[in-house]
Amino acid sequence: MKNIIIEIKGLKKDYQVGEVMVHALRGVDMKIDDGEFVAIMGVSGSGKSTMLNILGCLDKPTGGEYDFDGVNINTLDRDALARLRNNKLGFVFQAYNLLPRTTALENVELPLFYNNKIRSKERKERAIAALESVGLADRMKHMPNQLSGGQQQRVAIARSLVNDPRIILADEPTGNLDTRTSFEIMELFQSLNEKGRTIVYVTHEPDIARFATRNVIFRDGRIQKESQVNERLYARDMLKSLPAEEFDEM
């Protein structure tokens, strides 16, 4: 029996926009086990991002229960939530959200600055290790505007990894990237997952969803369908199958 990392029951999120009440989530139940690799799918506006933001403790639900790693999130105050994000969660955004005019290394170091237990030497070592693990050992001193989109996203992934989180949450991590770069990011996720990292990501593209082990499909604020992935894709193989002329640089 595996550990359950995330367990939500009847999760609701309403937004009041003027007179209108928008029901972004209308009662979602879900469990995510340790080591799982879950892709969340669904049409635009179905509540995927809302869901992921709540899972990442970036937003608060208006109803329902959320247990993360055995702790009921509703009982935590703002500071405790910040500590949780700092210690146990890694978030990857569609828009990368790197600090501008800040080197890749410093961007990756950032979460560790908010962890008192980590001295500056260890902070640097861990940031370097994280950047190496995403294949950017030679781009440490680069600023975000000196990096390609795929490289920026890999810096963001390194940043989400640097605190050794229990789970990585990624909202459309390949949304701004071309096919090949998307595959590279998924290859990175798959190898992280093989090493035991739990990953949940949102995607629009059915192909990208097939790199996961489980798919959850949202519709109108509810889970419409859940399924194990039958013919799972492996990004390494997919990259090889791409036309040769695109393999000019890695």
């Binding site: 703002r78 994000r85 600090l99 501008p100 979460p111 908010y114 940043r159």
Partner: peptide, 18 residues
């Protein structure tokens, strides 16, 4: 610009008082 920076800092674990 700085509000986004603050959002990012909070999302990676910065507390309000930090």
């Amino acid at each position: 610009e700085r509000t986004r920076e603050i959002g990012l800092r909070m999302s990676i674990g910065g507390r309000g008082k930090d």
